[in-house]
Computed example of a mutant assay.
Amino acid sequence: MYKAYFKRLIDIFLSTLGIIVLIPVWIILAAAIKADNPGPIFFRQKRIGRDKSSEKQFFQIFKYRSMKMSTPHDVPTHMLENPEQYITRVGGFLRKTSLDELPQIFNIWLGQMSFIGPRPALWNQDDLYTERAKYGANAVTPGLTGWAQINGRDELEINVKAKLDGEYVKKMSLLFDVRCLIGTIVCVLRSDGIVEGGTGEMNKKEETKI
Protein backbone atom coordinates (compact mmCIF):
# COMPACT_ATOMS: atom_id res chain seq x y z
CA MET A 1 0.00 0.00 0.00
CA TYR A 2 2.82 2.40 0.85
CA LYS A 3 4.72 1.84 -2.41
CA ALA A 4 1.59 1.91 -4.56
CA TYR A 5 -0.37 4.80 -3.02
CA PHE A 6 0.81 6.42 0.23
CA LYS A 7 4.30 7.34 -0.98
CA ARG A 8 2.85 9.37 -3.84
CA LEU A 9 0.20 10.99 -1.61
CA ILE A 10 2.91 12.05 0.84
CA ASP A 11 4.97 13.48 -2.05
CA ILE A 12 1.99 15.51 -3.30
CA PHE A 13 1.18 16.90 0.15
CA LEU A 14 4.76 17.80 1.11
CA SER A 15 5.69 19.27 -2.29
CA THR A 16 2.56 21.44 -2.37
CA LEU A 17 3.27 22.65 1.15
CA GLY A 18 6.91 23.28 0.32
CA ILE A 19 6.14 25.30 -2.83
CA ILE A 20 3.87 27.63 -0.84
CA VAL A 21 5.96 27.96 2.34
CA LEU A 22 9.21 28.53 0.45
CA ILE A 23 7.94 31.46 -1.67
CA PRO A 24 10.22 33.97 0.16
CA VAL A 25 13.20 31.65 -0.37
CA TRP A 26 12.41 31.30 -4.10
CA ILE A 27 12.47 35.09 -4.46
CA ILE A 28 15.68 35.68 -2.46
CA LEU A 29 17.67 32.95 -4.23
CA ALA A 30 16.42 34.00 -7.66
CA ALA A 31 17.54 37.58 -7.04
CA ALA A 32 20.97 36.42 -5.79
CA ILE A 33 21.56 34.22 -8.84
CA LYS A 34 20.60 37.02 -11.25
CA ALA A 35 22.79 39.57 -9.47
CA ASP A 36 25.81 37.25 -9.42
CA ASN A 37 25.77 36.01 -13.01
CA PRO A 38 23.41 37.11 -15.83
CA GLY A 39 21.33 34.33 -17.32
CA PRO A 40 18.44 32.01 -16.45
CA ILE A 41 17.59 31.42 -12.79
CA PHE A 42 16.80 27.77 -13.33
CA PHE A 43 18.90 25.10 -14.99
CA ARG A 44 17.09 22.29 -16.80
CA GLN A 45 18.68 19.01 -17.69
CA LYS A 46 17.49 15.81 -19.36
CA ARG A 47 17.39 12.95 -16.87
CA ILE A 48 16.30 9.32 -16.83
CA GLY A 49 13.00 8.80 -15.02
CA ARG A 50 11.22 5.69 -13.86
CA ASP A 51 11.58 2.77 -16.27
CA LYS A 52 7.93 1.83 -16.84
CA SER A 53 8.14 -0.22 -20.01
CA SER A 54 11.65 -1.65 -20.32
CA GLU A 55 12.63 1.53 -22.20
CA LYS A 56 14.17 4.67 -20.76
CA GLN A 57 11.70 7.35 -19.72
CA PHE A 58 13.08 10.90 -19.77
CA PHE A 59 12.12 14.17 -18.08
CA GLN A 60 13.59 17.63 -17.49
CA ILE A 61 14.98 18.10 -14.00
CA PHE A 62 14.94 21.58 -12.42
CA LYS A 63 17.82 23.08 -10.48
CA TYR A 64 18.90 26.55 -9.47
CA ARG A 65 21.67 27.52 -11.87
CA SER A 66 24.96 27.30 -9.99
CA MET A 67 27.34 27.36 -12.94
CA LYS A 68 28.33 29.94 -15.54
CA MET A 69 26.60 30.09 -18.92
CA SER A 70 29.85 28.97 -20.59
CA THR A 71 29.74 25.55 -18.86
CA PRO A 72 29.51 22.58 -21.30
CA HIS A 73 25.93 21.29 -21.31
CA ASP A 74 24.92 17.72 -20.41
CA VAL A 75 28.37 16.89 -19.07
CA PRO A 76 28.52 15.37 -15.55
CA THR A 77 30.51 17.53 -13.14
CA HIS A 78 33.04 14.74 -12.57
CA MET A 79 33.85 14.75 -16.31
CA LEU A 80 34.64 18.48 -16.44
CA GLU A 81 38.26 19.56 -16.32
CA ASN A 82 38.67 21.75 -13.22
CA PRO A 83 34.90 22.07 -12.53
CA GLU A 84 35.45 24.81 -9.93
CA GLN A 85 36.21 27.31 -12.72
CA TYR A 86 32.60 27.09 -13.91
CA ILE A 87 30.88 27.54 -10.54
CA THR A 88 29.58 31.02 -9.68
CA ARG A 89 30.03 32.56 -6.24
CA VAL A 90 26.38 32.11 -5.35
CA GLY A 91 26.50 28.70 -7.02
CA GLY A 92 29.23 27.54 -4.68
CA PHE A 93 26.99 28.32 -1.71
CA LEU A 94 23.97 26.68 -3.34
CA ARG A 95 25.89 23.48 -4.07
CA LYS A 96 27.52 23.29 -0.64
CA THR A 97 24.13 23.63 1.08
CA SER A 98 22.31 21.55 -1.60
CA LEU A 99 19.90 24.47 -2.14
CA ASP A 100 20.52 24.16 -5.88
CA GLU A 101 18.36 21.00 -5.74
CA LEU A 102 15.39 22.83 -4.18
CA PRO A 103 13.45 23.42 -7.46
CA GLN A 104 13.10 19.66 -7.82
CA ILE A 105 10.12 20.05 -5.49
CA PHE A 106 8.28 20.96 -8.71
CA ASN A 107 9.44 17.70 -10.32
CA ILE A 108 8.08 15.87 -7.27
CA TRP A 109 4.76 17.71 -7.49
CA LEU A 110 4.50 16.73 -11.17
CA GLY A 111 5.10 13.07 -10.30
CA GLN A 112 8.42 12.81 -12.14
CA MET A 113 10.33 12.38 -8.90
CA SER A 114 9.80 11.44 -5.26
CA PHE A 115 11.38 12.91 -2.14
CA ILE A 116 13.22 9.63 -1.54
CA GLY A 117 14.61 7.34 -4.24
CA PRO A 118 17.67 6.75 -6.44
CA ARG A 119 19.00 10.02 -7.85
CA PRO A 120 17.96 10.41 -11.52
CA ALA A 121 20.85 9.71 -13.87
CA LEU A 122 21.77 11.95 -16.78
CA TRP A 123 20.26 10.88 -20.10
CA ASN A 124 23.72 9.76 -21.31
CA GLN A 125 24.89 7.99 -18.15
CA ASP A 126 24.50 4.53 -19.65
CA ASP A 127 27.03 3.06 -17.21
CA LEU A 128 24.91 4.01 -14.19
CA TYR A 129 21.65 3.01 -15.88
CA THR A 130 23.05 -0.40 -16.85
CA GLU A 131 24.48 -1.04 -13.39
CA ARG A 132 21.22 -0.08 -11.69
CA ALA A 133 19.32 -2.48 -13.95
CA LYS A 134 21.09 -5.37 -12.20
CA TYR A 135 19.36 -4.40 -8.95
CA GLY A 136 15.98 -3.27 -10.28
CA ALA A 137 16.74 0.33 -9.29
CA ASN A 138 15.49 1.75 -12.61
CA ALA A 139 11.98 0.50 -11.91
CA VAL A 140 11.27 2.98 -9.10
CA THR A 141 10.62 6.72 -9.21
CA PRO A 142 13.91 8.65 -8.85
CA GLY A 143 14.31 10.83 -5.78
CA LEU A 144 15.53 14.15 -4.48
CA THR A 145 17.70 12.15 -2.09
CA GLY A 146 18.18 8.51 -1.26
CA TRP A 147 20.09 5.72 0.44
CA ALA A 148 23.20 6.22 -1.72
CA GLN A 149 23.21 9.97 -0.99
CA ILE A 150 23.62 9.41 2.75
CA ASN A 151 26.27 6.74 2.24
CA GLY A 152 28.84 8.59 0.20
CA ARG A 153 27.04 10.76 -2.36
CA ASP A 154 29.56 12.20 -4.87
CA GLU A 155 32.36 10.06 -3.45
CA LEU A 156 30.78 6.77 -4.52
CA GLU A 157 31.84 4.83 -7.58
CA ILE A 158 29.11 3.84 -10.06
CA ASN A 159 28.91 0.17 -9.05
CA VAL A 160 28.72 1.00 -5.34
CA LYS A 161 26.07 3.66 -5.90
CA ALA A 162 23.96 1.25 -7.99
CA LYS A 163 24.19 -1.46 -5.33
CA LEU A 164 23.02 0.97 -2.63
CA ASP A 165 20.14 2.05 -4.88
CA GLY A 166 19.23 -1.63 -5.17
CA GLU A 167 19.25 -1.91 -1.37
CA TYR A 168 16.80 0.96 -1.20
CA VAL A 169 14.42 -0.78 -3.60
CA LYS A 170 14.39 -3.88 -1.39
CA LYS A 171 13.95 -1.96 1.87
CA MET A 172 11.54 0.74 0.63
CA SER A 173 9.02 1.60 3.36
CA LEU A 174 7.78 4.62 5.29
CA LEU A 175 10.28 4.05 8.11
CA PHE A 176 13.17 3.57 5.71
CA ASP A 177 12.23 6.75 3.83
CA VAL A 178 12.17 8.65 7.13
CA ARG A 179 15.61 7.22 7.91
CA CYS A 180 16.90 8.44 4.54
CA LEU A 181 15.37 11.88 5.10
CA ILE A 182 16.93 12.28 8.54
CA GLY A 183 20.27 11.03 7.20
CA THR A 184 20.09 13.56 4.37
CA ILE A 185 19.53 16.45 6.79
CA VAL A 186 22.60 15.38 8.78
CA CYS A 187 24.71 15.05 5.60
CA VAL A 188 23.63 18.46 4.32
CA LEU A 189 24.46 20.14 7.63
CA ARG A 190 27.91 18.49 7.56
CA SER A 191 28.36 18.93 3.78
CA ASP A 192 29.28 15.24 3.68
CA GLY A 193 30.14 13.61 0.36
CA ILE A 194 30.13 16.81 -1.71
CA VAL A 195 33.17 16.70 -3.99
CA GLU A 196 33.26 18.66 -7.23
CA GLY A 197 34.23 16.17 -9.90
CA GLY A 198 34.29 13.57 -7.16
CA THR A 199 32.83 10.33 -8.50
CA GLY A 200 34.90 7.51 -7.00
CA GLU A 201 36.72 9.78 -4.53
CA MET A 202 35.95 7.43 -1.64
CA ASN A 203 37.84 4.60 -3.34
CA LYS A 204 40.70 6.94 -4.25
CA LYS A 205 41.06 7.91 -0.59
CA GLU A 206 41.30 4.26 0.40
CA GLU A 207 43.93 3.61 -2.27
CA THR A 208 45.91 6.60 -1.03
CA LYS A 209 45.86 5.22 2.51
CA ILE A 210 47.17 1.87 1.25
Score class of each variant (00 low, 15 high):
Pro83Phe: 04
Asp74Asn: 14
Leu110Asn: 13
Lys34Glu: 07
Gln104Val: 05
Lys63Glu: 05
Pro38Leu: 08
Arg190Cys: 01
Leu17Gln: 00
Pro120His: 10
Asp154Ser: 08
Thr88Asn: 09
Pro103Lys: 15
Arg65Ser: 13
Ile28Lys: 00
Leu110Lys: 15
Leu189Gly: 05
Lys7Met: 08
Arg190Gln: 10
Lys161Asp: 04
Ile10Thr: 06
Phe43Ile: 03
Pro142Phe: 12
His78Ile: 04
Gln57Pro: 10
Phe6Arg: 10
Ile48Phe: 12
Asn37Cys: 10
Arg119Pro: 03
Ile41Cys: 07
Ile105Lys: 04
His78Lys: 06
Gly166Met: 08
Ala137Gly: 12
Glu207Thr: 14
Leu22Cys: 12
Ile12Phe: 11
Asn124Glu: 00
Ile185Tyr: 09
Ala121Gln: 09
Leu164Gly: 01
Ile12Tyr: 12
Met172Pro: 04
Leu94Arg: 08
Arg47Cys: 07
Leu80Val: 15
Phe43Asn: 06
Gly111Ile: 04
Leu22Ser: 15
Val160Ala: 07
Thr145Asp: 05
Thr130Glu: 03
Ala139Tyr: 07
Ala31Pro: 02
Ile116Trp: 10
Ala4His: 06
Lys204Cys: 07
Val178Asp: 07
Arg95Ala: 01
Ile105Gln: 14
Gly193Val: 02
Leu17Thr: 02
Lys96Val: 00
Ile41Val: 15
Ser70Gly: 05
Glu206Cys: 01
Gly193Asp: 12
Asn107Ile: 14
